[in-house]
Simulated scan of single mutants.
Amino acid sequence: MRIETLPPAAAVGHILCHNLADAQGRKAFSKGRRLRAEDVPRLIELGVPAVRVAVLAPDDIHEDEAAIRLAQIVAGPGVAIGEPYAGRVNLSATIAGPLLIDAEALLSINLIDGLTVATLPPYTLVTDGQMLATIKIIPFAVPEADLAQSAAATGESGVLRVAPLVRRRIGVALVSSPAARARVERGMLPAIAGRIADLGATMVACRDLPPDEHDVAAGLAALLAAGADLIITAGETSVVDRDDVIPRAVQRLGGEIAHYGAPVEPGNLLLLAYLHHAGDAVPLIGAPGCVRSRDQNIVDLILPRLMANERLGRREIAALGLGGLLGASRRG
């Protein structure tokens, strides 16, 4: 593409670079318009001797077509493509779930001159119909080769996808001494139940358990038998060590401690484990005491991702440190 200044008759078929106004200052022609033969008399009437136009090369793709084609490259499962306008296309969710982004592919595309993709932050929990990203082609056209380069940088699942929340049967275990049981239930259960309901899931069972590894192991086994495909534990005190009661109960059942501790505040004392049951690795969140609050904390960051069947481990939890100082803590 090249920019030229041409008389109106010679500019037919090319793209107007700037808005043109009439004598009253009203917009007569909008930039981006492909000039037609019938526009020439009006341009002459406006006293325009020449116009700045974009002249496309044979291999150039118009901004609207380029935006659609880039959207088709970027959009993965759970993502809908909007209509193009002025080189822009918006992407929206077709299901609820966490937004997964191939950050390297996104960077590769945005490094190509003239192509831009702006997204929500990765792992944002989105709703059906919510806007996820906007694509803007900056020039009036881009070379075909640039779109080919974008496609080469992108995997089969695109750059953006929304993962469905497939684990929807949540078991809850509250661990406390008998004397503290009522207080723990009042303090913990409403916020946990609210999070489960907000995500469209069901609490299949809630077990009150004493702080004994044998009893906790039996309670966790009962939740698995009840059909729980994800378990949240909380209690009188947070898990304070890998050798604490809940981790030992997990190990007694043959489970795996994926990680203990998180660079997130509130939520440092997180336990993440997996219990093996009926061929499945059932995630277990050992929630810190902050789970009693509905303010955002570590549970809100990982629960949707686990419900979407993402296998989280040490690296994924460690990565939460970037942006891990959450709202309530920043105000402190």
Rank of each mutant, 00 (worst) to 15 (best):
L224T: 02
V184M: 11
G261C: 01
R52W: 15
P164W: 08
I101L: 06
C290G: 05
A221Y: 01
Q149F: 03
R88Y: 01
R331L: 14
R292S: 13
L43S: 13
D198I: 04
A273L: 00
G158W: 10
T154S: 07
S329W: 15
S176D: 06
A222V: 07
Y85R: 13
Y260I: 02
D59L: 00
A11C: 09
A226C: 10
V53Y: 10
R207C: 02
L312C: 05
L271G: 05
A258R: 13
L99Y: 09
G289Y: 07
G114M: 05
G255K: 01
A218M: 10
Q130L: 02
E256W: 06
L165T: 09
A163Q: 14
A145T: 15
R314K: 11
K31Y: 15
G261K: 03
R305D: 04
D22V: 06
R36N: 09
L43N: 14
V204L: 02
A11S: 13
V12Q: 12
V204R: 04
Q149L: 08
F140Y: 10
P98K: 09
E236D: 03
L209F: 05
V166G: 13
G289F: 05
F140D: 05
V291L: 05
I170T: 00
K136C: 09
I81H: 07
G158K: 13
P266Q: 07
G97A: 00
V55Y: 11
A75H: 11
R195A: 06
T202R: 09
A21L: 13
R207K: 04
P211Y: 10
L269W: 03
L303Y: 01
A10E: 15
L303T: 00
I317Q: 01
L189G: 03
A308E: 13
A133L: 00
G97Y: 00
A226L: 12
A205I: 07
G200D: 04
L46A: 09
I170Q: 00
V89R: 15
A151K: 06
E45H: 09
A318D: 11
R331G: 13
I137G: 04
L160W: 01
H276V: 05
L253C: 02
I109L: 01
R330D: 02
A10Y: 14
T233S: 06
L100M: 12
Y123F: 14
Q149C: 03
V299P: 04
V117E: 12
L147D: 04
A179I: 14
A222L: 11
P143M: 11
L46Q: 10
E316M: 06
R69Q: 09
E4F: 03
A23C: 09
V216L: 07
D212P: 00
A10N: 15
G261D: 02
G227F: 00
V240S: 15
G47Y: 10
A318Q: 08
A180S: 08
L56I: 02
V162W: 07
M188A: 15
